[in-house]
Design a protein around this nucleic acid. Structure first.
Ligand code: SF4
Ligand code: SF4
Lengths: 161, 161
DNA sequence: ATATTATGGATATCTAATGTCCATAATAAA
DNA sequence: TTTATTATGGACATTAGATATCCATAATAT
């Protein structure tokens, strides 16, 4: 039940892209140096982000990555899902058991149950509910939220000079 | 980012123990038959639940397992943590990078930061916050909550006769 | 004593995460 | 056009963790 390192790398890479908003097309070379990850591995991660429309990529000399939308629009949830996929956290592995029949088959107690409710019990619903709560929280937080902290610090440094 | 099958098995085993509250000491034999898991594997799972004080076990003839507390007192969270452990979902793997120094070292912006805040940035705080939300939800739901559904159905069956 | 049951160590197998390598395509610059 | 640079994607290797089995031992009801 842990997020993969890839998710960690993806978040940090995006933050770097967001911080260097002025400079366009930051290559995997620079990113991998900052994150202390190999270029080959980080490439796979950046490709996933590109496929999900989170960053744009351009090949060739002076190529690289840039955010495909503003940092305000990039939520933690979509980054995590781009990397980890979208399978549900809890998958029933007991659907043929007597227990499942007892818990999930409500067709006898309720005259006309919806088809979608027929094969789920409250275990599944609690776990799915938990996932939805997690998702909601992650949807409400964006890369910009993290950036604000860094920006605050940056402004302070500038004023200091 | 998925719960393990072991967690699935643990929840189902506990529900069976809770449903058979009258009969004490239900063996791994019966449980494994109901869940369609091998006895050896389920043994490990039950041991974890026992170590965390969720079930009681008694060896020997007529031995087996029973809930160590009421179904109302057993939360989803403690079951999941008994099986999956208690590591945090997000672990920083970038603590030596320049980026971390920029994001996390706030000692310059705030005169006297608490020691606990010094080595965390908002990425970490968002992820930990998400985990806390997930935990809170799982803490609020108990085995009894699932049981109520089954009981309702059971009562209906009885009335039907 | 005997049969039964849980426990824990050792070990095997399988799967997903992590990591590397290379051939190819795209593109800016010379 | 040629060259250097960069992203892309397939293949593959390695590692770590989840899943699964086996067995020796302890505990306990009969
Ligand atoms: S629906 Fe409920 S009883 Fe059936 S397999 Fe899923 S969690 Fe188990
Ligand atoms: S504290 Fe923030 S910047 Fe530092 S390693 Fe953790 S997530 Fe990354």
């Amino acid at each position: 039940m842990q997020f993969s390192k890839s998710t960690d790398y993806a978040l940090h890479a995006l933050i770097h892209l967001a911080q260097a908003e002025d400079r366009n097309n930051i290559g995997v070379k620079e990113l991998s140096a900052i994150l202390s990850v190999s270029e080959s591995y980080l490439s796979k991660i950046m490709s996933k982000l590109r496929k999900d429309g989170i960053v744009r990529a351009v090949s060739g000399v002076k190529g690289g990555y840039e955010l495909a939308k503003t940092a305000e629009e990039i939520t933690f949830l979509e980054v995590i899902q781009a990397i980890e996929g979208r399978q549900q956290m809890f998958e029933c592995s007991n659907l043929n058991s007597k227990q499942h029949q007892l818990l999930a088959e409500l067709s006898n107690t309720e005259p006309k149950p919806k088809a979608t409710d027929r094969d789920e019990c409250l275990v599944k619903k609690v776990m799915d509910g938990a996932e939805q709560h997690l998702h909601q929280y992650l949807r409400e937080h964006t890369i910009q939220f993290v950036l604000d902290q860094a920006t605050k610090r940056c402004n302070y440094s500038i004023n200091k000079k």
